[in-house]
Write a protein that binds this DNA or RNA. Sequence first.
DNA 1: GAGGCCATGTAACATGTTACATGATTGT
DNA 2: ACAATCATGTAACATGTTACATGGCCTC
Lengths: 183, 183
Amino acid sequence: MSLRHALLGLLVDRSASGYDLMKLFDTSLAHVWPATQSQMYGELNRLASAGLVDVSAQGPRGRKEYTLTDKGREELARWLAAPTPPQPRRSELLLKVFFLDLATGDQARAILGERERQAVAEHERLSALRAALGGDDGPLTVNGRIGLEYGLRLAEMERDWARWAAAQLAPREEVAAAAPGES
Amino acid sequence: MSLRHALLGLLVDRSASGYDLMKLFDTSLAHVWPATQSQMYGELNRLASAGLVDVSAQGPRGRKEYTLTDKGREELARWLAAPTPPQPRRSELLLKVFFLDLATGDQARAILGERERQAVAEHERLSALRAALGGDDGPLTVNGRIGLEYGLRLAEMERDWARWAAAQLAPREEVAAAAPGES
DNA sequence: GAGGCCATGTAACATGTTACATGATTGT
DNA sequence: ACAATCATGTAACATGTTACATGGCCTC
């Protein structure tokens, strides 16, 4: 239920409408906690009902500006202090790897090769982002850099793993390729 | 919708009941694709309706043994050959990191320290598992080792990242700690 | 006055979790 | 006969996705 905390967090140093929060999300949190527009408007209403935010102003087109309440601030603090259980990862890639012997050698190489490319692309994307951050060192930038670093390291790890895994596959193929020639 | 493919995959080289599949899951796939009992029975019924599996035998206590059909085999092959889109990661840890400046220094250190411990524990668990696999080299063991290696590398990456991140935090603290003394 | 953005919402559906319900069979 | 295990299922709820609906405001 952490979309709730993401929204509370964004409201800490500014009041904003659902629409504003959506935009903020897309340019910041989207990569660690994707959420759709539907979800956000729904959650904001629930947040208001629960008294964690207030509708502090009504604007032009039915615009509702939300402001964090003390109760909301408390909830956010509680969440930050609470343990973060390791969440079970659901990975389609690893599921395919589990059944890799059901695929042809070409398919297996394609699966790993594709992931390697994806990881490289992701790494480049994040590198560019980090470069754009520049030498700033405000608290927000420090946080951002720490999160970014996670993504960079993950991408490197996946890239290297995919290469390694493809190499593990190779011997099997040599055997399969040699056998028909020998018979 | 990959629970479906996980079940099809498990049925490739054996027929089994829902109960059997549940057990198999818990001792193998659970770490890459967690699923509950409820979900599996439901999915098996849907799989049977769709003609991807057959109820090949009925046993003692209403036991239904499922067997993969040709259509099911095709669907599995199709899935393996289809691209694996990188799935957006939803990470509560990274969400907290994003808001790390809202926490006290102690809280921030606790969050990262806890993750470091979790990563170390996970690494130990997987190391033990790998040791138990031994020197076998059947196709299943090769797959298993590749998946395991992913987990090991991920755990190492998280451990190192958490240490690095904690170090990034330190300067901020020194400033905060030094300032009162200077005044 | 038209197109683009601002702004919020609903409906239908898919997926996943927890808890509960029910009962048969097997081994001791 | 009792407990453990086998075996399947339903109900309620939470979360998340996609698509659609509706309309106001602003700028050119």
